[in-house]
Computed example of a mutant assay.
Amino acid sequence: MNDIAFAELVEKTRETLQRVAEQFAPAVFASSLAAEDMVLTDLILRDKLDIGIFTLETGRLHTETLGMLDRIRETYGYEVEQFKPDASAVEQYVRQNGLNAFYESVDMRKECCRIRKVEPLNRALAGKQAWITGQRRAQSTTRAELHVKERDEAHGMEKFNPLADWSEEDVWHYIRSKNVPYNPLHDRGYPSIGCEPCTRAIQPGEDVRAGRWWWENPESKECGLHVVDGKLVRIKSVATSA
């Protein structure tokens, strides 16, 4: 992509974020603190948009990922809000199934994700009109039909994926050109980063999300944040130009 086309892509994304802030308040951005989310963090905070930023602190994140909270504070003077799982639910899961039961079956893994991610997300979105994610269409087969704007029926609100059209090269060009801080795990072969026991580095030629829940089949590799009753929320997506 040439410089003009890239500048247009960035401007289109900025306009989407501005529209969310102006038309869908209160709105929030769910950040995983990975590369894509640092692009959106930079755009939101540079433009001083009225969009809150939060992360799901699952209790099993990499030290490097948690370190991004400090990097954001130091770079932008912004405190990312953290939503943590219910301690009693985590304790019960571990007591009944073991600390790493998620390796045993997809159901066990999804239950762990429900406790550590989905339930905290529901709390984070309570009372909001819209939420934003850093998902991209090119990330995996489960996101091939991703649109910039979707109707999230599960939470009764609009959902925006401003980077849906971005390539991985676009993400890194923005980060390097704007000197945006990023998770050092990306330099160690982790293009997609989740909880530490569920994420590995990928091999050359693998899908960018191959390191997430690597012991499962590709079609099951979503944690439940973007899936309802086994179906992708984006089934009811609207046109990208919306």
Rank of each mutant, 00 (worst) to 15 (best):
N161Q: 11
A27H: 07
G156V: 06
E79R: 10
R151G: 02
I53N: 03
P85Y: 01
I132P: 02
K231M: 13
D47S: 10
A210D: 07
W166R: 01
L9V: 00
W166M: 04
L146P: 08
S237Y: 07
H155N: 15
L125C: 12
D37K: 03
D152P: 13
L99W: 06
T75V: 09
L99C: 02
R212M: 10
R114I: 08
L232S: 12
E111T: 01
F83M: 08
Y190W: 02
Q129N: 15
V238P: 05
R60F: 13
I202N: 07
S220W: 11
G127F: 02
Y76A: 06
Q139Y: 01
E169I: 09
R46N: 13
Q92R: 15
N183K: 01
Q92K: 15
P197E: 10
F102T: 14
K149D: 02
M108V: 03
C198R: 07
P162S: 05
V148D: 02
F6Q: 00
R209L: 12
L40K: 07
P191V: 00
P184Y: 11
N97A: 14
R137I: 05
L66A: 06
I235W: 02
C223Y: 03
N2K: 07
T142F: 01
A239E: 09
E222N: 06
I175R: 01
M108H: 12
C223T: 04
I44C: 07
V10A: 04
L69F: 05
A101I: 00
W215G: 02
A144V: 03
G194E: 05
V180L: 03
C195M: 13
L17N: 10
T141C: 13
V180Y: 04
S220P: 00
F6I: 00
K178F: 07
P184M: 08
C198E: 06
D37H: 02
G127M: 07
K231T: 11
S140D: 06
D50P: 04
D42Q: 03
M1D: 01
E11Q: 15
W215K: 00
T58R: 02
Q92M: 13
G205P: 10
F102R: 10
D152H: 12
N179L: 10
V39C: 09
N2V: 00
R116S: 14
D165F: 09
L69D: 06
R137G: 03
T63C: 11
E81V: 14
S140E: 04
T75P: 11
P191A: 08
H226M: 11
L146T: 13
A87L: 02
Q135W: 03
E36C: 00
R151L: 15
F29M: 04
D152L: 04
S105Y: 09
F24S: 07
A124C: 09
R71K: 14
R14Q: 10
R14V: 10
T141Q: 15
T240L: 09
E206G: 09
Q23A: 08
N122L: 14
E196P: 00
R234A: 13
V39T: 07
K110S: 11
R212D: 08
A7Q: 11
V90A: 09
T16L: 09
E8V: 10
E74V: 12
E145W: 01
I202C: 07
G224H: 06
P197I: 13
Q135L: 15
W213S: 03
R114T: 14
A87F: 09
G224F: 04
